[in-house]
C-alpha cells in the first residue's frame, strides 16, 4: 500500500462567526474536496454565557466530515491531539467501511464482523494512520479575546507536532491567523514539519469584534489548492486508497 495524504483543517476559535458566508457551507465545500474540517471551541472560564456556540462548532465539523470539541483552555493540548487522531481514524475507517461493503455486500460494517475478524480490519486502519502522510492547516482565531489563550495554543501545537512526528508518515503543518488586516486570514507560518518554533509566529493581534470564520475557512481551502497545484499532482488523498480492495 503506498502512503497517501490526509488533509485536515483545524479551526481553533472562541467566538461565533459574524462576518461573511456560512462557515458550515465552506466546510462542506472542503469536505467535498477530501479535506476534513475539525473545530475546537474554547470556552471562557467563569462565564455563564459563551460567545462560542456548541451548535456552530458542531455544524461546521459535521459539514466538514470532522470532529468537534468545546473545551476550556486547560484541556487544549490533549484535545488538539485527540481531535486530529480521531479525524484521521474516522476518515480511514470511512474508506475501509466502503471497501468492506464492496466485498461483503451492502449493509455490512465492522460491527457485523466477529471480534477476531474485526481485529484484522482495524489493523489495516491502524497501519494506514501510522504511515499516511498528514497535512494540517491550523486556523487560529487571533481576535482580541483570544489574546490570553495564545500561549496555551502554542503549547498545544508544539505537543501536537511531537506526537505526530513520532509516526512513520510525514507531516506538514501550516498556521493561519484570522482575521487579517485586509484579508480574511493570513499565513503566519508556512508549511513545515516542525512546530517547535511556533513561538515567534503569532502576529500583532488584529482588532477584535469581527470573526469572519467562513471567509477564513475559504482562505484555508485556497491554500490547499495552491499547494496541490504547486505539486502538480492531480490526485487528491482519497483516490490513492483505491488499491486496498484487492
Amino acid at each position: 500500500m503506498k502512503p497517501s495524504t490526509l488533509k485536515q483543517i483545524l479551526l481553533i476559535t472562541d467566538g461565533c462567526s459574524n462576518r461573511g458566508e456560512d462557515p458550515a457551507a465552506v466546510a462542506a465545500l472542503a469536505y467535498a474536496q477530501h479535506i476534513t474540517v475539525n473545530v475546537i471551541g474554547i470556552l471562557e472560564e467563569g462565564h455563564a454565557e459563551h460567545s462560542v456556540s456548541l451548535e456552530e462548532v458542531e455544524n461546521i465539523a459535521k459539514a466538514g466530515g470532522g470532529v468537534s470539541q468545546l473545551i476550556y483552555k486547560q484541556a487544549l493540548t490533549e484535545t488538539v491531539q485527540m481531535v486530529t487522531k480521531q479525524a484521521m481514524t474516522q476518515t480511514i475507517e470511512g474508506v475501509v467501511n466502503q471497501e468492506l461493503k464492496q466485498i461483503l455486500g451492502p449493509g455490512n460494517t465492522l460491527d457485523d464482523l466477529p471480534p477476531d475478524k474485526r481485529g484484522d480490519v482495524l489493523e489495516v486502519v491502524e497501519d494506514i494512520s501510522e504511515t499516511a502522510n498528514l497535512e494540517v492547516l491550523i486556523l487560529v482565531d487571533t481576535s482580541a479575546s483570544m489574546h490570553h489563550k495564545l500561549q496555551v495554543v502554542k503549547e498545544a501545537l508544539i505537543d501536537l507536532s511531537i506526537s505526530m512526528n513520532a509516526r512513520l508518515g510525514n507531516n506538514k503543518f501550516a498556521i493561519f491567523g484570522f482575521p487579517g488586516k485586509r484579508e480574511a486570514a493570513v499565513k503566519v507560518m508556512d508549511w513545515t514539519e516542525r512546530l517547535e518554533n511556533v513561538s515567534s509566529v503569532f502576529p500583532k493581534l488584529a482588532t477584535g469584534g469581527v470573526t469572519p470564520t467562513g471567509p477564513a475557512l475559504r482562505e484555508a481551502l485556497h491554500e490547499f489548492s495552491r499547494q496541490t497545484l504547486g505539486k502538480r499532482s492531480a490526485n487528491d488523498g482519497m483516490t490513492e486508497y483505491e488499491e486496498f480492495g484487492s
Partner: peptide, 13 residues
C-alpha cells in the same frame, strides 16, 4: 469503544 478494545485484544493475543 470498539476500536481501542479490538486493538487491546490484538496486543494481548
Amino acid at each position: 469503544k470498539r476500536t481501542s478494545m479490538t486493538m487491546e485484544v490484538k496486543v494481548l493475543q
